[in-house]
Design a protein around this nucleic acid. Sequence first.
DNA 1: GATGCCGGGAG
DNA 2: CTCCCGGCATC
Length: 398
Amino acid sequence: MAAVQPRGRLSPADTRPARGPEDDEGLIYMQCCGQEDVELRDSQRGASVYLPAGSSEGAWPSAAPLTCAGSSNSFRSPESVEMDEIMAAMVLTSLSCSPRVHSPPQKDLLPASSSSGDMECGGGELSDSGSSGYWSWDHGSASPAPSPSVTEMDGSLGQPPDEGLHMELDYEARRYKGSGKGAYRCLWPSCGKVLNSRVGMKRHIQLHHLGGGSEHSQREEDFYYAEISSEEEPAPPSPAPTLSIGPWASCSSPLGASTPGTLASASAFSTPLSQSAPSSVWQIHTEHLYQACAAPIQVTVSSGSSTSCCWNPPSEAQHKPQVLASRSRSVSVGEQWLQRNSAPTRSQTISASPSRNHCTFRKGRGEAKKCRKVYGVERRDQWCTACRWKKACQRFPD
DNA sequence: GATGCCGGGAG
DNA sequence: CTCCCGGCATC
C-alpha cells in the first residue's frame, strides 16, 4: 500500500504561499515556457509522433503553451511549427471547454482569501471553478483533494477537444508501462504527467503544483499522483460509477455542485482517486477505530445509491428522510477525512461553514448500553478509552 | 437531568 | 500522539 497518510490536518500554515496577483503571472509564465521548451525538444528528439505541447505541463497557465510555441518557433522546422500550432489550437480548445482547467492558475493567482484561508488546492481551486464539486476530495480542499484528477482530461471525456491530451497521456503511460517500470501519474488537473519514479513524481508535484515550497508534507504530495499499475487500464473515457466512488463522489459534490454535469464529473475524477483513496479510508478505520466501526463497509458498498448524506445540501436533505435516518458514522468519517485533507474550502459556493452545516450530524443515541450505563460513573476506570474521553463508545458500538 | 459524543484544547 | 473537557443534541 502506498504510504498515503491522509490524516494530516492542513492548517493555514500549510497553505501555499499566496502568489501575488499579477506580477507573479509573468513568473509562472516564464518558468512554464522554459520547461515546455525543454520538453518539446526532448520529445521531438526521441519520438516522432509525440504530442507534447501544452499537454503535460503547459496546460495550466492558460496561455502558456501558445506563447511557448511562438517563442521558440525560430528554432524549429516547419513541421514542428505546424504541429505546435495544431497542438496550441487543441489546448486552447480544451481550455475553453473544460472550466476546471483554469483552476490552478486561478488558485495560484488569487491572493489569500480572507474568508477561509484559501488553502488547499483541492477545495479552493475547484470551488473556484464554480462549476462542480471539488473532487477531492480533494479532494478542496480540500481537497483537495483531493483532488483533481486526470480523468477529467481523459474524459472530459469523450469530448473531441480533449482527445489529444488523452492520447498523449495514454501514450506516456504506455511508454512507461512498456518499459516494465512502475509509472506514476500526476493527478493534478490538466497535468497528468507520467513519471516512472515516485520520487520524481513527488518532486514534480512539489515543484510544479505545490509551489515548490518545502513546507508541504510528503503526505500532501501523495495525494496528487496515482500509481499506474501494470494491469491498470488507462483511465476509461466513460465515467462509469465504480464501487469505490461512493464517498468521494458524494462528499465532493456539495462543494460546488449545482450544475447537472457535476455528478458525472465527480465520479469521473473519483475513479483514479479510488486507486489511492481507499487505503486512506482503511487507515482511518484502523487509527480511529473507536470512531469509525462501520465506516469501511459502507464506504466500499455504496455504489451510487443515496447512501451518503454527506453531500446533500441542507435544503435537499429534507427531501431525503431515509438518508437522514441512515446517517451513520461512516459519513462522519468520510467527512472528517475530507475536512482534514481537502476541506478548508472556499465557502462561497455553499454555506458559510460546510463542516458544521451540511455534514455534521449527531448520531442519535443508540440502543446499545454504553460503558457509562454498564459500569456506572463510579467505575469509570472500567470504561473503554473512548468513553472515558467522551468519544463514541468503542466497546459497545451501536 | 442523564447520556452520548463532537470538537477542540493542553501537554 | 494521549488525555481531557466544554458544550451540544438527544433521551
